[in-house]
Amino acid sequence: MQPNYTIRRPTQAELSMLPAIEVAAAQLFLPTQYAFIAAWPPATLEDLAAYFSWDGVWVAVDIHTTPVGFALAKIVDGEVYLSELDVHPEHGQRGLGRGLIKAVAAWGKQQGYRHMSLLTFNDIAWNALFYARLGFRALTAAECGPELTAIAQGHIAAGLPATARVAMLAELDQLLLD
């Protein structure tokens, strides 16, 4: 991660800045077959406040301490689940996504968890391939717990194609390696 950025917990007031980051990051889907995602509404302030109350929000801030990226996580099937990871495209390709994942992994390890799971697209380079380079591996349907399966089914019900989605898992120790 470049030195002009810091990963930290947000203040409650900063939560209101996160939907704009999500909207900007969603624009990256426009040239893909999932362009419809760019029109989806971002997380609500109520949703973000829930993650905040669970201690499940991290932000990447620039030199002016303005949030430019964020991660949301919660506990699913007894392990850390990365619900969302967004970096404003103007600040992309600077290690912020990886830095946010490492912060979530460090928190999870401190809480006594061993793994992190997520759901992502299997056919977009900055999704599954990005996570695979960090140490995530694809899960079979049989390896997914009931809560992760329910989240995946919710994604499909919302319009995401089942064949394009993949559940992934990594050991927190692996994610904390440099």
Rank of each mutant, 00 (worst) to 15 (best):
P3L: 10
N4D: 10
R8T: 11
Q12H: 15
A13T: 08
A13G: 02
A13Q: 14
A13N: 11
E14L: 01
E14F: 02
L15Y: 08
L15D: 07
L15C: 05
S16N: 14
M17H: 09
L18G: 06
P19Q: 09
A20N: 13
I21L: 00
I21T: 02
E22Y: 10
V23P: 04
A25Q: 04
A26N: 13
Q27M: 13
F29P: 04
L30Q: 15
T32G: 06
Y34E: 05
Y34R: 07
A35L: 02
F36W: 12
A39Q: 15
W40V: 07
P41L: 12
P42D: 06
P42E: 04
A43T: 13
D47E: 15
L48M: 06
A50G: 09
G56N: 10
W58R: 15
T65M: 02
T65L: 07
P67M: 02
P67A: 05
P67L: 02
P67Y: 04
V68G: 03
G69F: 01
G69V: 00
L72R: 10
A73V: 01
V76T: 13
D77P: 05
D77V: 07
G78L: 09
V80Y: 04
S83L: 01
V87K: 04
H88S: 10
P89D: 10
H91L: 09
L96H: 08
G97H: 05
G97W: 06
I101S: 07
A106Q: 11
W107C: 00
Q111H: 11
G112Q: 11
G112Y: 09
Y113F: 15
R114V: 07
L119H: 09
D123F: 13
A125K: 13
A125C: 09
Y131S: 03
L139P: 04
A142G: 00
E143R: 08
G145P: 13
G145R: 12
L148P: 05
A150K: 14
I151H: 12
H155D: 07
I156D: 06
A157S: 10
G159K: 15
G159A: 14
L160Y: 12
A162Q: 13
A162E: 14
T163K: 15
R165M: 12
M168Q: 14
L169E: 11
A170M: 08
D173I: 00
D173G: 06
D173V: 08
Q174H: 11
Q174P: 00
Q174L: 09
L175F: 03
L176C: 03
L177K: 14
L177H: 12
D178R: 11
